[in-house]
Amino acid sequence: MSETTGTTWTCYDANTMTQAEIYGRVLCDIGAQRPDLIAMTADLEKSTKIGLFKDKFPERFVNVGIAEQNLFGVAAGVAKSGLLPVVSTMAVFTSMRALEQVRTDICYQNLNVKIIATHAGMSFGAAGTTHHCTEDLAIMRSLANMTVIAPADGIETANAVRAAIEWPGPVYIRIGRGFEPVLYDTEEYGFQIGKAVELHSGTDITLICCGITALQALEAAKMLKESDGLSVRVLNMHTIKPMDTEAVMKAVKETRRIVTFEDHNVFGGLGTAVADVIAASGKGCAFEKVGIPDTYCVVGYPEDLYTHYKLDANGIMDKVREVMGKDFEEDENWDDEV
């Protein structure tokens, strides 16, 4: 597959390129058209793959050294000078070390800074808790003006980066380390910020996922259809904020059972955001959140950790069967459920 043909975007060779590498390439493509795009990092040009941009546009690349607070403060200034900074460093340093710069300098001033935060969730599993980041969705979605996206794979990351460039104000894109398996085989599935993607249709139960859990949920849905005859809807809720409330409420009404899956603390992230929507609607449904159970994760390779914390297809299937077994009022009368 070719990288680009003329002005039409086509799919990157996702099987041999990592998630991070794909966004690095996409950034180079956008950079060729946007002379105001400035790429920035804090001594992680190789780990985050933003260094690909440096190779192509060295004069438009800023490395501030190991100084994340300075990274986001400088990015705010660069944005204020009329340029478009795209900043990449690890999610844990973005959301915690430099949180006040992200909040006060970038979000409060509503600046056009795009953030690509890497190594999120447990994707840097063997590195341990200092480098895991299972809190960022909760933190970022509480910042006014911030848009929060957790793409499912490298292809969706490419779409998210392109969309973020055109989207006004600060955007936080959360990706893994880059070695995650690929979900999509094409970029042409109608990605839109704030619009969930239905990966699998279903009427018995809805799985709402983001990031690495989307692929696992899809696998689980396919297997459950075959083995249990269950009709499982899978929503890739790639945008955590603003959330696609319409898709959530449609799932509440049509499937009456919702389970959320995320590579994040079960408090404050995708599950909480979905629960907010349901609670505010006054409508009821069976509901479960699955994620990291409010703990600092053990060490291991990411795939082992996803299995351990039941964020893989097997874990998802077990959870679906459990929720399907729950007694739940299934009539169509909504009036008695407010």
Partner: peptide, 10 residues
């Protein structure tokens, strides 16, 4: 100062 650095660089 960090924002000043960004502005001056820009």
């Amino acid at each position: 100062l960090a924002q000043g650095v960004g502005l001056a660089w820009g």
